[in-house]
Design a protein around this nucleic acid. Structure first.
Lengths: 139, 139
DNA sequence: GTAATTGCAAAGGATTTGCTCTGGT
DNA sequence: ACCAGAGCAAATCCTTTGCAATTAC
């Protein structure tokens, strides 16, 4: 596999841009902007919340990160391993995330959309559950 | 099929409660609280936005209405025809909604969840598209 | 009459925007 | 030096809450 290259969202390389990049590279879980900001600050990085939001937005626009909306309505971001179309299995306790593919889901979507006469289909499939580790910890 | 009975969310039957019920019964599309409130006000009903929110919340808690989160993050409510598990095909232009079932999706979910060791799975599948009418209108 | 319900105003919380200052290049 | 990017504060937007007035029962 190719190493994740530092994706500079804007035209200039700044300390803050790499900080956000690094924070995203350091985890495979979905993180909110507030989350990442707090973590960066805790780690001693001087960065504003607005800046975190702006970088994440740019990364999302560039499709470098995936965005999902949590159950509470916040946006969460994640640097995905594949650029292929996929979905996420997210632990509702620790946000641990697993990428999954589902060809049969995609074909089902096409089928029911066609049946209803809908075109230009977009879809989101989000799956929440309890990951093995959290399930064990709570037993 | 059985007629949709007026579902009173609280213990007292008020003018406002039935107004919300009626508004929901009058459409098959997903509507936001703000939306319904504006519509009711426009129709001359005296009702506060807070009250609309409260009734929708209660109805959602009672599982009388389905709730989805729109692409812009707002909550949208809808009185569904079936109480069975189903998903929605929603027109991104006019919010026209079609209920769809997908046994294969449900079984796929179980399968991938089991494979990843996740338990206590919940999922959302939201499908957005352009309905036949809107597609035609925009051609 | 009593307690549930209403609805205004205000609070909350996430995200965005205005605008000035800072720092890449 | 120039201009993109940073960041604070203020503004937005949806939704919830506090609390006094209303109204169903």
């Amino acid at each position: 596999m190719t190493a994740a290259q530092p994706v500079v969202s804007r035209t200039r390389a700044t300390r803050q841009a790499s900080a956000v990049d690094d924070a995203l590279a350091a985890t495979t879980d979905f993180r909110t902007a507030q989350d990442l900001h707090a973590q960066l600050r805790a780690a001693g990085v001087r960065i504003g919340l607005t800046t975190v939001y702006r970088h994440l937005q740019t990364l999302a626009d560039t499709e470098v990160v995936d965005v999902v909306r949590t159950a509470t309505g916040e946006l969460a971001y994640r640097r995905c391993a594949t650029t292929n179309h996929h979905h996420h299995l997210v632990c509702r306790h620790c946000a641990h995330t697993v990428e999954v593919e589902g060809p049969e889901v995609e074909s089902w979507l096409d089928r029911i959309a066609a049946r209803a006469g809908f075109t230009d289909i977009a879809h989101t499939v989000e799956i929440a559950g309890s990951c093995p580790r959290c399930t064990a910890a709570r037993a």
